[in-house]
């Protein structure tokens, strides 16, 4: 009976507890300025990006070291993505896109460290990232193209009768963008972590433990892939939205 009690304690499912925001110092309420575990992991993410992109490249070597070549590959990948999709005019916004990409990649991967806090699993965080893109792109579109930006919603290739209907649909889909943009990232990260946690809870039971541990390994490997893919997708969608702002008439 004792082992069963143990097992029951182990089998307590709290897959969402890992996402709780707690103050680092003391146990008080969480104000907007309170340094919390979220703050700590934001800071670690920041330091990791700086370590790669600033300290990794301090040699400025023509023949790069390993860390420097990783930094350069990241730079080259994001730069090429932006240039391919948005053309030469998009290159101006490269620092912002690069900031997004580096932040998301590092936040995702750091969240895979056991006992860490996954900042990108919070919809509040990804919503801010997505709203920045949304508002930025909309403002940029109007500033660059004036009222011509609205041609984005007026599908010229469709028959005239259909155009108002399509315009409504286009406007709706345009406005839903930040929602899907943010929930995709947060949902993916949260789902993976919650699933790992559920498997971890099962691992406390002796007879399913091997299966559960295998499951954890599998999901963990999947998450390693999802982390980079979601960051990539977030960035590439940012580029696509940016292209809409720069060249609204497709």
């Amino acid at each position: 009976m004792a082992t069963e009690t143990e097992a029951e304690t182990g089998l307590a499912f709290h897959p969402m507890d890992q996402f709780m925001v707690k103050p680092i110092f003391g146990d008080g309420p969480v104000h907007w300025y309170t340094p919390t575990n979220a703050t700590m992991w934001f800071a670690i993410t920041l330091l990791a990006v700086i370590a790669l992109l600033v300290f990794g490249t301090r040699g400025r070597a023509v023949i790069p070291s390993r860390v420097q070549s990783i930094a350069e590959m990241t730079y080259g990948m994001v730069y090429k993505m932006l240039e391919d999709i948005c053309g030469k005019e998009g290159v101006k916004y490269f620092p912002y896109v690069m900031t997004l990409f580096c932040f998301i990649v590092f936040a995702n991967y750091l969240a895979l460290i056991p006992m860490s806090f996954s900042t990108t699993s919070h919809i509040a965080v990804t919503a801010v990232l997505a709203m920045f893109v949304f508002i930025g792109v909309t403002v940029l579109g109007f500033v660059k193209n004036g009222m011509h930006f609205l041609e984005l919603f007026w599908v010229k290739s469709a028959p005239l009768a259909l155009r108002p209907v399509l315009a409504v649909i286009e406007v709706i889909s345009y406005c839903v963008r930040p929602v899907s943009h943010s929930i995709r990232l947060a949902g993916n990260v949260m789902a993976g972590h919650a699933v790992i946690k559920v498997f971890a809870a099962f691992a406390a039971v002796l007879w399913i433990a091997p299966l559960a541990i295998l499951g954890i390994i599998g999901v963990y490997a999947l998450e390693m892939m999802v982390c980079i893919i979601q960051a990539y997708v977030f960035t590439i969608l940012t580029c696509v939205y940016l292209k809409d702002a720069l060249h609204p008439a497709h």
Binding site: V30, W32, T34, T36, A38, T39, T119, A124, V125, V128
Partner: peptide, 8 residues
């Protein structure tokens, strides 16, 4: 929300 958004 406030905390997360501020530190983000």
């Amino acid at each position: 929300f406030g905390n997360l958004i501020f530190w983000l």
